[in-house]
């Protein structure tokens, strides 16, 4: 899923303080699971903002709504009539939701309430870690199911580098060395011979490097 983290209150306040009526919109998908922008977080943030502005002597309406998804037309349409009554929208969806909202309601200011961080997994309650960078051409088949693009600080295709120490990355003792993990996995799979195969230069044209990407599946298009 997409993992996000709520912005600091001061930053959010700075974005919306010149308005009087704000619609705070949550999303029921990824940001709910990572506890950054679901219904619960919408409630807490709305209450905090109302208290903040009241305490600073400003009359501010903050209303709440949480949509099934903000990255789909049909759910975003649900607030078409509603959004008219507000000066601006504060979205707690990921960057995708914020942009889709901005595209749909072209003359409505839309502000992000979260920082979209990465594609990751819930390791445990309250701990999310990165697993994928959406490079567009998956190489997990060759690396024992562990991704060096997202998990090696240097995204080395033929790692590890000389900085790997006790299974940890040179950038921090808290960070696992992806290539140590890969070697461990290849060993467990009895595939250490694969380690010596040189990984060719990666085609980054399917990555961000190739410009904005698009997936088209014609057979389902109406």
């Amino acid at each position: 899923m997409i993992v996000a983290e709520q912005k600091k209150l001061e930053e959010i306040v700075g974005q919306i303080q010149d308005f009087n009526k704000i619609l705070l919109v949550g999303c029921n998908e990824c940001v709910t699971v990572c506890e950054a922008g679901g219904k619960k977080e919408v409630g807490i943030l709305a209450s905090a903002l109302r208290m903040y502005f009241l305490n600073h002597g400003k009359e501010m309406t903050i209303d709440e709504v949480t949509l099934e998804r903000q990255c789909d037309h049909e759910y975003l349409e649900e607030i078409r009539d509603m959004q008219d009554k507000y000066d601006a929208v504060l979205s707690l969806a990921c960057g995708v939701g914020v942009q889709f909202m901005a595209e749909k309601y072209h003359d409505k200011p839309v502000y992000p309430g979260v920082n979209t961080c990465f594609l990751g997994a819930t390791e445990e309650r309250g701990l999310w870690t990165e697993r994928c960078q959406a490079c567009g051409s998956c190489i997990l088949a060759y690396t024992g199911g562990i991704c060096p693009v997202s998990r090696c600080a240097k995204r080395l295709m033929n790692g590890p580098c000389g900085g790997s120490t006790n299974g940890k990355c040179e950038i921090s003792k808290e960070t696992d060395c992806a290539w140590q993990l890969i070697v461990n996995r290849l060993k467990a799979l009895g595939r250490m011979d694969d380690y010596e195969k040189l990984m060719p230069l990666k085609d980054w044209s399917t990555d961000r490097a190739g410009g904005p990407r698009k997936v088209v599946k014609e057979d389902v298009q109406l």
Partner: peptide
């Protein structure tokens, strides 16, 4: 923590 951030 929320109260602290809103100045209460």
């Amino acid at each position: 923590k929320v109260l602290r951030s809103v100045g209460i």
